[in-house]
Design a protein around this nucleic acid. Structure first.
Lengths: 256, 256
DNA sequence: TACCGCTTGTGAACGCATGCACAAAGTCGG
DNA sequence: CCGACTTTGTGCATGCGTTCACAAGCGGTA
């Protein structure tokens, strides 16, 4: 772990003390939205847009305008009253806060269907996240290049991750292997993990895990399908909920 | 509340009037967790476990025990004080509330890397979500079976979706195509959409959209990497935040 | 320069979700 | 049958996040 990391100010990512305290205070939900704003803003910049108001940007991002302004205020005051925000300025500040000024090397573990898809994503979404290592257990895969990177054996995970300074590990293995893979990533010094396996990972406090769970997403949708179907049944039976929340009682269009 | 009124039990998905009102009231966050509990419980059932306490289950699911009990209370009182919960009973009640008693036919649009991976997921995570239709624009793909299902042309989306009673649409197209595909799905009567494209979709109120955004996930992780690196820098430079919020001043373990 | 209209930034209220703490309710042993 | 122990279900307080509403501030205009 004796790489560039240690000596604070000499490295890249120069975050001012004021920004540092701000970064600490940004709510997780706001961080997620900042990433969305960034994408929208980048798109605007590509189209030659130079300035934008909170109203326009919030619509494009699908959020409330006040919320957007508050989110932006977490990272500082970079707007101009009466005018709006400068797109370039906003982009660069959000990138800085999100730590996108530095590259984050990514390792994908588990080169099945999903692993292939991830490895081939090419430059990885939004760039700045180069995939530099792939791992699997299958002997037939070892050494085979996928998306330009040869697959390594999972037993070499520590050495390879350290060597290539992997900062984000992506777990795309079958469920039973996930915890073990996670442990290995952690002992290789990886502190951020994106988990696609439908498993609740146990990790030390200093490791950040985010999970993408297809089954859960599907089931949440299923819940809504069921709720809708059920409401429709109620309506067709002439039942109307007495305790209606104030969402507007207008006849929501429901197909027979 | 006048919950007795429910005379309309003639349709499928027999949700009691009492349950119906409960379903309406379950917080979204709790729904997501219920899906997780369900998976953990299913695993336990497979291993022959018949009873479980909130403490055990909450640990396995990685949540607070009180929160778990509250979540379960949203769907009714199916535990036994002094004993715990019957695994089978809990499983069946959660499945019922999540609408998993009925199959939800899934259509995948965009058969690129990700689309392939999704189509091949086989029975789809957690079963109950059969993929019954695939769509793309690429002429070379039309008719080719992927994961056992032949790919249809996207222009046939309305007819095919209606015919196969698709209730969930999955968008795995490149960003520029996403909104158009979404519109077509909606006009085909699909009311639930899972969106993998990094685009903010505009939909009518009666359509439920969930989005899985890799770029956003990566950037959130990046934010945490940056924050950590920065904290480490602060510590090594002997800087300690003065205006600390009351989170506890204990020295959080940070590796050198 | 002084005014006017527009948009930001934020204080304050509200609402939802989380976590605590305890009464209710059940089991088990004697 | 009773009392001790265990675990659920939930009222309540706390904290976080969202939303509203408005003062502050800036550019444009006369």
């Amino acid at each position: 772990m004796a790489s560039q990391r240690g000596e604070g100010e000499t490295t890249a990512t120069p975050l001012e003390p004021a920004d540092r305290e701000r970064a600490r205070a940004i709510p997780e939900a706001a961080v997620a939205r900042l990433a969305v704003y960034l994408r929208v803003l980048s798109g605007m910049a590509d189209q030659g847009v130079t300035a934008v108001s909170s109203e326009e940007l919030s619509q494009a991002a699908g959020v409330n305008a006040a919320k957007l302004r508050k989110d932006l205020s977490y990272i500082g005051s970079y707007g101009t009253r009466g005018v709006g925000y400068d797109v370039e300025v906003l982009v660069s500040h959000i990138e800085r806060i999100l730590g996108l000024t530095r590259n984050h090397s990514v390792a994908v573990v588990g080169i099945g269907n999903l692993g292939h898809a991830l490895a081939n994503y090419g430059g990885f979404p939004g760039r700045g996240f180069p995939v530099t290592a792939l791992f699997d257990v299958d002997a037939d895969l070892i050494g085979v290049p996928v998306g330009g990177i040869p697959v390594s054996h999972i037993d070499d995970i520590t050495a390879v991750c350290l060597e290539r300074e992997v900062s984000i590990g992506v777990i795309a293995t079958p469920p039973p292997a996930a915890q073990s893979v996670c442990d290995r990533l952690v002992s290789a010094g990886v502190q951020c993990i994106l988990n696609f396996a439908p498993v609740v990972l146990q990790v030390p406090d200093n490791v950040e895990v985010r999970k993408v769970d297809l089954a859960v997403e599907m089931q949440i949708l299923s819940f809504h399908v069921a709720r809708r179907a059920d409401e429709a049944a109620s309506v067709s039976a002439g039942i109307v909920s007495a305790g209606n929340n104030g969402l507007g009682v207008d006849g929501m269009v429901i197909r027979p």
